[in-house]
Design a protein around this nucleic acid. Structure first.
Lengths: 160, 160
DNA sequence: GTTTTTAGTTATAGATCATAACAGTTATTC
DNA sequence: GAATAACTGTTATGATCTATAACTAAAAAC
């Protein structure tokens, strides 16, 4: 079992770690890039008191007023149970309301308040700035190519 | 303050939720695609007893025998403290060894065992299959375009 | 030789996420 | 129309992940 003599890579601190094997994979690049994007987005939203999920939820509620929690949970791809605290947060800040649905007394219709719509506007502007930053000068064609590729990948899971 | 009459979107269950606003953003597409990729990768690695992090760690150790935990932590972008349990797991399964470094008795040199190298081979093969699956027929040019774009995005954070 | 820094570790708290169980309501089915 | 099944939102809980502080041992700096 000749064990390779634990060569400490010569000089201390030098000698970059090679990730050549992992760089073969598109998933590796996606993870590393997305880590940075997520961190930057959350920093961007922090002054508005929003996180990535609460922001996404607010946008979907403003764009789809009256939707149910279960619909929103599915759209956001989170469990109904976990959505509750997210909605609690938005409702507690009076950005949205839970309105009873007359035709189905189990369900709540989610609607934005005026404050919710205003924060939506501000958040969207902030996120557009964030996007411009992360794109880092990338041209529109390259951006659209990425979006198309992401859609191809996603379709592979949803479509079967 | 005319609040839109919480219209429950007519028929129950129908009426797709529109994410048109979010689809403007590349980050949104990246998140949704990556969610699927991550789930599929973990399913792929489960039969080998590996998760995404333990797999990445194993690959880097095989490719960079003798590296220190702190180097690996930085390469994986995890805290030194959190890397400990990952290394414990790999060492417990005798896939790697922690070897004392003669020239620095604080540090451990991480080296793969023969079993570690064999699992590395199997894992790499499995992940190549996973990648082919997620690419979903995408051509090499498109794949390289995505990798280039991810690098541009990542560079924006690292480079400053 | 004292102080400062570093490597690995432990402990801990926060956030995230999946799961099961429950009450109230609606839908189905005989 | 009574019994059964399914669905909506909720609570509780445990697993996992992540960040932070504090500690020991050792090396480096001064």
């Amino acid at each position: 079992m000749s064990r390779p003599a634990a060569t400490p890579r010569g000089e201390a601190g030098g000698a970059r770690v090679s990730d050549a094997t992992l760089r073969e994979f598109i998933g590796y690049h996606m993870k590393r890039a997305f880590n940075g994007v997520q961190a930057d987005l959350n920093q961007t939203l922090k002054p508005l008191g929003l996180r990535m999920v609460t922001y996404s939820a607010l946008v979907l509620i403003v764009d789809n007023p009256g939707l149910r929690q279960s619909q929103l949970a599915e759209a956001l791809d989170v469990e109904r149970a976990n959505l509750v605290v997210i909605i609690d947060e938005l409702e507690g800040r009076e950005l949205i309301t839970r309105d009873r649905v007359p035709t189905d007394r189990r369900a709540y219709a989610l609607n934005p308040t005026l404050a919710g719509r205003r924060l939506y506007d501000r958040a969207l502007e902030a996120v557009r700035g964030h996007e411009a930053r992360i794109l880092n000068g990338m041209d529109e064609e390259a951006k659209q190519a990425v979006i198309a590729a992401m859609s191809v990948i996603r379709r592979g899971f949803e479509g079967g």
